[in-house]
Write a protein that binds this DNA or RNA. Structure first.
Lengths: 222, 222
DNA sequence: AAATGTGAATGCTTTCACAGCA
DNA sequence: TGCTGTGAAAGCATTCACATTT
């Protein structure tokens, strides 16, 4: 690279970076947290790769999309790279999250410690059931009526919605959430959902995950 | 294709089929369930693609790895293809599942209706906490002591394990599960896990999923 | 000497486009 | 005619290998 301004490179072409790459940035960040906890000052792509079953060239290429964060002959400064990754991933601010569906899964997600750890704040749960509205999750996340979703997410500054409702309600809930101005959605319900352009939907499909294990077992028997 | 024996093709080379393909088989199966519910007898790759936002050529190619299931000029018979997919995915038998970790997430997964739907049977939960052992989930899945994992999974014929324990315990639990003879594991804990060869580990990383949404939002702002 | 950043090469996946069959 | 099954082409992603820098 020839530019003197670190991290300036490629900012025009950031939407060309694939999701595979950005997902790995999250993993790298997690690894760096471990290394920092162990008191490591610097790390090379090679040692990072060896410790966490990754590929060194891939680490370097992934990072290089976003800037020159390393020092030749040395490696990467752990704290420095962590900071850069958190900034790239948008984790250098608190992100407020709403979960729609206060069933078993929604409640579990609301109290999932992994989310809070990296700076997400699960601010509110929504449900339609009378007996749930007004309650809180074990961890203290309040449950509101879905009817109040639009107004509440607006004034609460919610930026991410998690859909944890039964399949039949998912598209309706998604429409509500989008209408409320939310543009990033994590979906746990199965089935096909329509999203308008400009809105990012990421789906976690538990059934597909289990069935891929079933396929593996079925093959082993032949 | 020239072979007259349907579905016989490629059985030697089935491990060459990528996981991207097999994951899509699960999606196709789900779509077929919808179509069958709507009373459709046949479906073409084109109409399947249009209805569920898929690619027609990809559907055909995915299916063709496993046999000739379609009829030229007609399409696929819904019930017939469903049966084939269930067989390919190993869903033509009950699969017994154990969940390790009876915390919020483990309990939610134990009662998740989507699993039972396609023939999985969540047979047992495991935990280390005295006060949990002996209880059941809301849906009635019994909670046993992790100490009994090996004997219980053996005589219960458990084939799939779900890891829903805190990060610090995950590798230990994975080792136990593998030692008990289980070769297919769905993992919800973050971090790197070592698996011996011949064992399939599929990880669902909730933090990575949320962070990819954070990245999307951060880009939109520039 | 050591490790980055990166073109070039390889390997995978998706899409195209059409021969061939019902 | 309509649609599958499938080579060939195009498009992505990963890995290699090395010039370059500290």
């Amino acid at each position: 690279m020839k530019t003197s301004n670190k991290a300036a490179k490629g900012k025009q072409s950031l939407d060309q970076v694939s999701e595979l790459t950005t997902n790995r940035l999250s993993l790298y960040l997690r690894c760096l947290n471990v290394l920092e906890g162990a008191g490591e000052q610097t790390v090379s792509s090679r040692s990072l790769a060896e410790k966490f079953h990754l590929n060194a060239a891939q680490i370097r290429k992934d990072l290089a999309y976003f800037g020159e964060f390393g020092v030749r002959g040395v490696g990467y400064y752990v704290g420095d790279l962590k900071r850069h990754l958190r900034q790239i991933l948008g984790l250098d601010r608190k992100l407020r999250v709403a979960i729609i569906g206060a069933g078993n899964l929604g409640l579990a997600l609301a109290d999932y410690p992994g989310f809070r750890q990296e700076g997400f704040e699960i601010a509110v749960l929504f449900d339609t059931l009378r007996e749930k509205v007004g309650q809180t999750s074990r961890g203290g996340v309040p449950i509101h009526d879905v009817a109040d979703l639009t107004t509440l997410t607006r004034c609460d500054g919610i930026q991410i919605a998690v859909i944890a409702v039964p399949e039949a309600a998912a598209q309706h809930v998604l429409n509500l959430v989008v209408a409320a101005g939310i543009r990033a959605i994590l979906n746990f319900s199965p089935g096909t959902l329509d999203v308008p352009p400009g809105v990012k939907l990421k789906s976690v499909d538990l059934t597909v995950s289990l069935e891929s294990l079933s396929f593996f077992l079925a093959q082993g028997e032949g």
